[in-house]
Write a protein that binds this DNA or RNA. Structure first.
Lengths: 144, 144
DNA sequence: GTATAAGATGTATTTATTATACACCTATAA
DNA sequence: TTATAGGTGTATAATAAATACATCTTATAC
């Protein structure tokens, strides 16, 4: 039970931008810092852009910045925007309605409550909250 | 974000046994009912046995029964016993401690709280609770 | 005491999802 | 007009999960 690295990277991107001195950075810089696939990050960043979390600018001197201050970026929103489903059990998926315990099985309701409890906690925090313990980021590229 | 079918099947097995008229059934009967892989179920059932949820008996006339009444079987316990990890984000995995935001990143703590909230809900219910809406099970094998 | 029916075990294969790589496109500033 | 930035689509690789298969062990019935 784990979020995808796609979602994980999205959160790291936001944290990195928020902590970078100028508030402006590039995909390459982030990929080098975390030592992760630049190609994968491109897609993460693009989606963060289309969901309104970051502002991307192409061309020379371009890069990334937050669209809103960290206090206004909710972690639950980010996770919901990046993770592609929350079908906690099979029967949540509209395409998989063949379990013979349907429709009266109490599991579905229980897992719905559990999933909501999970997301409620994420909804209770902003980007600013998860940055609290981090003072500065050492921008030297990662030595593998 | 979904539990594995391995865990899903485990829960269904317990529900099926609890609702079967004699309280005794076989792997083949369960696999036929849910129209799922018998081979996979064998492993699920074996683990349910080794974790103390079901009593398995080999040989002719053997099969499965619950080791405890449904009121004494906690859903959170079952999920914890079947799901093989709850590394909500990468840094929960002791083998993956290379994220450069460690150790002061607030995400870890936040996801720990979210994961606990999720499991707390599952811990609040027993097998008896999730069976409440189910009156009887039609034991006729599934027509695919 | 042997045939049958049940679960147990280990390995191999298939499938699905996720992550990564690659090639090329578009935009923009110096 | 070139260098640098993100955007897009497709292909491949890696991983995890599910399934299949073969064989073993145990227990009961006859």
């Amino acid at each position: 039970m784990q979020i995808t690295s796609y979602t994980d990277y999205a959160l790291r991107v936001l944290m990195f931008i928020a902590k970078s001195p100028t508030g402006q950075t590039t995909i390459t810089e982030i990929a080098d810092f975390f030592n992760i696939s630049r190609n994968h990050l491109v897609k993460v960043v693009h989606q963060l852009g289309s969901k309104g979390f970051v502002k991307t600018t192409r061309g020379k001197g371009g890069g990334l910045a937050l669209q809103r201050p960290p206090e206004m970026i909710n972690i639950g929103d980010v996770v919901r925007s990046m993770e592609n489903h929350f079908n906690w059990v099979e029967c949540f998926d509209p395409a998989q309605q063949h379990c013979r315990l349907l429709p009266n099985c109490g599991l579905k309701h229980l897992f719905a409550r559990a999933g909501n409890a999970y997301l409620d906690v994420l909804d209770s925090a902003t980007l600013a909250d998860v940055l609290l313990g981090i003072t500065t980021i050492d921008l030297n590229p990662q030595i593998p």
